[in-house]
Design a protein around this nucleic acid. Structure first.
Length: 504
RNA sequence: GGCGAGUUCGUCUAGAGGCCUAGGACGUCAGGUUUUCAUCCUGAAGAUCAGGAGUUCGAAUCUCCUACUCGCUACCA
């Protein structure tokens, strides 16, 4: 049977980069095994719903190149794929569990539970709704049957809680961690069905995974503690449980905690795939896309954070990732996000791009600067400066002088490279360059070099002063190639302007 | 506090009892290339495999203990 996996985010905000990695591993696993990946929205907590989050998730995956086979926005035969639209189907399952003795109705108010917790805290203990305490609470286990019926019928708020059998060793087999055993006495009677008529994650998740025929649950490690509940739920329903794989966490670059939204703002890298404007706080969080990352680079970097292909290859296309992917190569320990590595990946991927691929990005940047652009010109510029780009946005910093003549000259560079008589020499060279129409890089180079040799000039001084006149500082690509792109007429203007400014 | 998971160079990791004088990548440093900066190339430093005790002829790899880190401990997911 071909595997069926799912990515099931809650629309409580932008998709976290850790979530992206979880989705990626699900995607790779599905593709590798000719399986199906579906997108399910888990919006059972109505209080945490954030408008726009669902659309954000869809757009983010589109940008990243992670495609779903079924789900929200796509459809499929197991829909609806949004839990709020499946609301009606959960209640019978909760009732079935109560009828079969696997769960019970509980009428304790939030205030009463809170009081219990405070009381326990005062005695330096923790209150847990479990086998040892449930007989002291207000529920269908302690109330007479007719009283329970009366309360239910009168519309009194209630929840359904799972009833763990006492002293049972629950075995969870995890594909990345092996067998994990926990005794039921340590677990609390989790709420399965809330008083607002919605299931909690636990119930909805199991019901949906079962009815959607999910075969493998690949999710974050933060779910490992509730995995025993989930296997018990499958058992209670008499369903075959899927296989579990709990992924290691993505950690913040400094310290050891889970990577959070704050870390991105603090350390200067995005925690979200796309930029996000929070509708409530008005805050804006940066995204990989807007920060100038290529989706291929983000995917490659993320894939290697907690997994390896079993060889030394680091640069891998999506197809290669699919080819190499396997769950047993997933590591157990959390991985710290590294900005340096991300930057390196992005640099490598930019080098792989053709000028035509990159043109749309640069066109946008230039338009924002109010510069009319010519595609052929922009493409030639790109070829000259591409190896200096780590991010798409570096384009302007590295190439601005190809579009706008410098008006200021780097004082440090001038001090080192612009001496008495430099202006005169530049005029001579400039007039030599004007001879070459059409410009010939080789000939221009040879002529200038001959001039330098004949007059016993310092090559570094002369060439760098010309560079300063053209660029504004002692940086940039090979001089004669650069002149070829900029054009000798423009060079002439820049030389005169530099002399006028510097020697004024 | 309770429970669970994790622990190999600064970081991501390779490693399934002898191939380990612990390999690769990023970063760092040093050289080289270059008229400059960057790229690129070469090289170096960098891990007593968390600590301890066992098992074994032999352990980073197996067992146990300890420590530390993280996660969970809601009518959130």
């Amino acid at each position: 049977m071909n595997p069926r996996v799912r990515f099931a985010p809650s629309p409580t905000g932008p998709l976290h980069i850790g979530g992206v990695r979880t989705a990626l591993y699900n995607y790779l696993f599905a593709k590798k095994n000719n399986g199906t990946l579906l997108l399910r929205i888990e919006d059972t907590d109505q209080t945490r719903f954030v408008p726009g989050a669902e659309e954000y998730i869809v757009e983010a995956f589109k940008w990243l190149g992670i495609e779903f086979d079924e789900g929200v926005g796509i459809g499929g035969e197991y829909g609806p794929y949004k839990q709020s639209e499946r609301k009606a189907m959960y209640k019978p399952y909760a009732e079935q569990l109560v009828n079969d003795g696997w769960a019970y109705y509980a009428f304790d108010t939030p205030e009463a539970l809170d009081a219990k917790r405070k009381e326990a805290e005062a005695n330096k203990k923790t209150f847990q709704y479990d086998a040892t305490t449930r007989m002291d609470m207000v529920n269908s286990l302690t109330l007479p049957a007719d009283e329970v019926t009366r309360r239910l019928e009168s519309g009194e708020p209630y929840v359904v809680r799972f009833k763990y059998p006492a002293n049972l060793d629950i075995h969870v087999f995890d594909l990345v961690r092996g067998e994990v055993v926990i005794n039921s006495n340590l677990l609390d009677d989790k709420v399965l069905y809330k008083s607002d008529g919605m299931p909690t994650y636990h119930l909805a998740n199991i019901v949906d995974d079962h009815t959607m025929k999910i075969t493998h649950v690949i999710r974050g490690e933060e779910w490992l503690p509730s995995a025993p509940l989930h296997v018990m739920l499958y058992k209670a329903f008499g369903w075959e449980a899927p296989q579990f794989a709990h992924l290691p966490l993505l950690l913040k670059p400094d310290g050891n905690g889970k990577l959070s939204k704050r870390d991105g703002d603090r350390l200067g890298f995005p925690v979200f795939p796309l930029q996000w404007h929070d509708p409530k706080s008005g805050e804006t969080s940066s995204g990989y896309r807007e920060s100038g990352y290529l989706p291929e680079a983000v995917i490659n970097m993320l894939a290697l954070l907690g997994w390896n292909p079993g060889n030394d290859q680091e640069m891998m296309s999506m197809d290669e990732l699919i080819q190499y992917f396997s769950i047993d190569k997933i590591s157990k320990a959390g991985a710290k996000f590294s900005l340096d590595k991300a930057k390196w990946f992005n640099h490598e991927y930019i080098q792989l791009k053709s000028a035509d691929d990159m043109y749309p990005y640069f066109e946008k940047i230039l338009k924002e600067k109010g510069i009319e652009c010519n595609k052929n010109y922009v493409n030639s510029v790109y070829e000259l400066i591409k190896d200096r780009l780590n991010f798409i946005g570096d384009f302007w910093e590295q190439a601005n002088y190809f579009f706008v003549a410098p008006t200021e000259y780097d004082p440090q560079a001038l001090k080192k490279r612009w001496k008495e008589g430099t202006g005169d020499k530049l005029r001579v060279i400039d007039s030599m360059l004007q001879e070459f129409k059409p410009y010939d890089k080789e000939k221009a180079h040879d002529a200038v070099m001959k001039y330098i040799q004949d007059n016993e000039l310092n090559m570094g001084q002369v060439l760098n002063s010309l560079r300063i006149a053209i660029v504004g500082t002692a940086r940039g690509p090979e001089l004669f190639t650069m002149i070829n792109v900029i054009g000798v007429e423009e060079v002439h203007k820049r030389v005169e302007r530099a002399i006028a400014t510097v020697e004024a």
